[in-house]
Simulated scan of single mutants.
Amino acid sequence: MLFAVVTWQVAAEGPLLSADVRLGRALFGTGPTVLTELLADLGSTTVAPLALLAAIAYVLLRDLRQWRAALIAALAMAAVPALVVPLKLWIARPGPLEPDIGWYPSGHMATATVAYFGAALLVTPYLRRRWAMPVAAVLTVTTGVGLVLRGYHWPLDVLGSLCLFGALLPWLSAMCRRRSSSRTRTG
């Protein structure tokens, strides 16, 4: 629901859009450049998908029967450009520091959300402590912070991606935990 509201506000240039621009301009360039660049890079296609790939490899090496969960996580990552690119073309939002269009929703934020939470969902059953989801949340949120502070995206670009792909997480979680009845032990 929040994704629909944010997208409507960006597309229709509603009141949230002017607040977004003011907030973005106030935040751009703040923070140490090296750190904010590193945080923004956590959502790049050379970093985040590798985390998911490592989790997929780990899970398959532990239990090859988890191939469905691994496949679902990989398909969720493949869905990122399939959903984000058409939305970017449709919304055609100009960038914060460049006149180019196609900044909403943030592909880097979408990539980070799916990669880190997907990896956490895959590895959590194999961990003694439940630290993977909090780590995924920190990595995802700090990616968004880095993207905004570096001026790569407006705050609503980041929020829109988080809402869109965050809504997929419960579905992804359910699909990853689903067990075939043929493998379920009976009394």
Rank of each mutant, 00 (worst) to 15 (best):
G146K: 04
L169S: 00
P170H: 13
V145R: 02
T140Y: 04
C176T: 13
R178V: 02
V145E: 03
S180K: 13
G146Q: 08
H153S: 06
V158K: 01
D157R: 02
C176I: 11
G151Q: 09
A174G: 14
G146S: 05
L172S: 05
L159I: 15
L147P: 04
S161E: 07
S180V: 12
F165C: 02
R177G: 14
V135W: 10
L164T: 02
T142E: 14
P170K: 07
L159D: 10
D157Q: 01
A136E: 08
G166E: 12
Y152H: 12
G144S: 02
A137C: 11
A167I: 02
C176K: 01
L159Y: 10
G151R: 13
G144R: 03
V158R: 03
M175P: 00
G146W: 12
P170L: 09
R177S: 13
R177L: 12
P170A: 08
L139F: 14
L159S: 07
V145Q: 01
L162W: 14
M175H: 04
L159P: 01
V141T: 02
V138C: 08
H153G: 05
C163R: 04
L147G: 01
R179H: 14
V138N: 09
G144H: 07
G160T: 02
P170R: 10
T143W: 04
T142C: 13
G166L: 08
L139A: 11
S180G: 11
L169R: 06
V148H: 08
A136L: 11
H153Q: 09
C176F: 01
G146F: 11
G151F: 10
V135F: 12
V141I: 15
L169P: 03
L172M: 15
L172A: 12
C176S: 09
L164M: 06
C176N: 09
V138D: 03
V145W: 11
R150L: 09
G166Q: 12
R178A: 13
W171P: 06
V141C: 00
T143F: 11
Y152N: 11
L164C: 06
L149H: 01
V158N: 06
W171M: 13
C163A: 15
C176V: 11
L139R: 11
G146E: 07
P155E: 13
G151W: 11
A167K: 03
P170E: 02
C176Y: 02
L149P: 07
L172K: 06
P155F: 14
G166P: 10
L168M: 14
F165M: 00
P155V: 14
G160P: 05
T140Q: 03
V148G: 05
M175V: 00
L156V: 10
P155S: 13
A167Q: 04
V158P: 03
L162D: 09
S180L: 15
T142W: 15
G166F: 07
A136D: 10
L159F: 13
V141K: 00
L139E: 07
